[in-house]
Nucleic acid binder design. Structure first.
Lengths: 213, 213, 213, 213
DNA sequence: CATGAATGAGGATTCATTCAT
DNA sequence: GATGAATGAATCCTCATTCAT
């Protein structure tokens, strides 16, 4: 996306630089087939590049995979980080977060595919990376603090804070993970109106679930 | 079919029949490495069986995979089906379902691993099977009816019923899918006390989230 | 054909004895697929016999092949040997031979299939066997003598005797070898009337070809 | 297609290009052992090429076989096609055809070997191809016309024209198919003088066999 | 940068043959 | 005789990676 740097006027194929085309093809290949099921030849032919060039640019497929992950997850993660900077009310913060990640999930469906496979992978670097990033971001901590304060003030019921966070995240990301199944069971899809409905429902259920009576 | 032949003292390895040992080894291999990353040699050596026996019993690795899926998902699916037969109050039904699937997820962690990878697979037979089974089970329909009736009676707020179901499922299964990440971020684990806490929190948030004010 | 000797009342399959059923299945398998392309499993299942029984009866596939050959070629070869005993005129002898081998080729099409493959095999035992048998039978010698005598008597043109024999055999057996091609080119088949026509044409061309003018 | 790249001095073995060396080794292997009995490893080592290169150039052994056939049969078939263009007298035409196919059979003995095996194969593509080509060539038709005209003119006896053609072909190609057997029975070989004798004998027998008396 | 060719190790599958019962 | 299971040695084919140019 933002890698048109070298602009070296490539001789033969496509309009983007070879390196960038490789990355894009690799994103597609890896998200569809997983790391074990992906094939260098396919990435090469899909990006209109000689196979050897992949090694010229990335030295190994494992490294290419890492680059792909970096490219794919850097945008959403920075978006997420930003999304928690300005956050007045808790409800506003929730909506902000829901907006943010819905946006990149819809923009880059590959993210979910790769996340699914990585979640199946013990000691997945990516999962560790995202996890670490999330924790360091302070988002869960900040969220916990607010919720706790709300409970103390009597605005919220005395819920288990950690569980509440887990529920919130599960409702939002968990839905995307499970969406192929919901599509079968409930005939849903990623239509814009449905997504809006979903976000509203999450916020609604959560806020009412924790609100004091 | 006849692999439960108890302890017929086979020639060399293990106590169970060769076919069954292959299936168990395959469950482990496939759940850890996915279909593309699995190796016949590993399954053979792990089950103490000559590689050719795998083909003798299953003709192809693809078929072995199918058998594994069948074996792995049949138990939880029948458990689920049963769990929705006797259900008085909605809260009781929810708790029942939470109990049921927590149980088999903890009993067979491989189920989640394979489910994750299958969710990344478009047109996954397993996802279709589970989805179809769920829909046919009438569980979502029954659940929707109750919720609707509750709304009409004024017991529940006028929530979007379909979204409520999605939220509930996401909170329960979605949590298991995301648990490796939660483990990193929130230092959680599958400890029994945590699981109990989790189930309680889901029921609590959901019931309060839909309860009329 | 004449192997119902042991008559051991076999337990399960077919009416003929197991050994004989194996041989018949092997004839079919070997003639269709050649030695290299034949499969023990197929012979076993086609004859309704456990694979191990084939080794019990024949110890190896190579030996089974030899037995098949023996079974398959013994009948035609003895028939041929007999056919040259009573032979008055040369024309009568020719007709006799044409009749004889047409008969068994039509009766046992497998013979031609196996002969074709064996002819492609340098040092083929079968080819050697048939060749040796033919030479020893004295048929070519006797035939040559007659032809020579006919030439001396002025009944025949001074043809090259050895070549004449080759021509005669080529016209008769060679036709069967090439018949799949003739079927394509000339829309022929093994219909009885065609076979009669063929035999008549061979005798006619040959007799007129060597007759003195 | 581009395998005639003359002497580009490739890395390790032989003088011809790798692709061409594979084809030559495959011709030898397939003709000696048949499709089912051929081994990729043998073709690889015989052509001094890494086994994987065979798949690099030909994708599969089946396809390699097809290419071999194409390569092997294209020359004789075009030769045959040409041989029937200028043909004044019938005798001249016969001699021409005998010359042509003797030539390529002697030049490429592999052709006969492969033809033998293909003739044993029902629905053999090669047999169909050759058959089709022959029919389309018009050779049999033209030949039949001449023979018929000769009969009408009283130059030839009223022979069965179709059978005469079959006889002629059987005498020429059929001889080559059966030659391993003739070698045993009559101690013949492919010596030049013998071949000349053979061709002369065929023409002699045929022409005299059909000539009017 | 770019390409076609090459390689070696790995991995799936097949198959004749044998064994225990 | 008969069977199902087992085995080891092929054998085919794939794939990441490298090389020469």
């Amino acid at each position: 996306m933002a890698e048109l740097s070298k602009g070296s006027m490539p001789g033969k194929t496509g309009q983007a630089g070879a390196r960038e085309r490789i990355v894009q093809a690799a994103i597609s290949e890896f998200s569809q087939n997983g790391q074990a099921g992906s094939r260098v030849d396919r990435i090469a032919s899909e990006s209109g590049v000689n196979k050897a060039m992949i090694y010229y640019y990335f030295s190994s497929t494992e490294n290419l995979y890492r680059q792909v992950i970096k490219e794919l997850f850097s945008a959403p993660l920075t978006a997420l980080r930003r999304s928690l900077e300005g956050h007045e009310s808790m409800e506003a913060a929730i909506k902000q977060i829901l907006d943010t990640h819905s946006e990149f999930v819809l923009d880059r469906p590959e993210v979910i595919k790769i996340l699914l496979r990585e979640l199946a992978n013990p000691n997945s670097e990516i999962v560790e990376m995202i996890g670490g990033m999330l924790r360091e971001s302070g988002l869960p901590g900040e969220f916990a603090r607010r919720l706790t304060k709300g409970v103390e003030r009597g605005e919220h019921r005395p819920v288990n804070v950690r569980q509440a966070i887990i529920s919130l995240v599960s409702m939002s990301i968990g839905y995307y993970l499970l969406s192929p199944m919901f599509a079968k069971v409930l005939q849903t899809g990623h239509l814009p109106t449905f997504i809006e409905e979903r976000k509203a429902a999450i916020a609604d259920l959560f806020m009412n679930g924790v609100k004091a009576r």
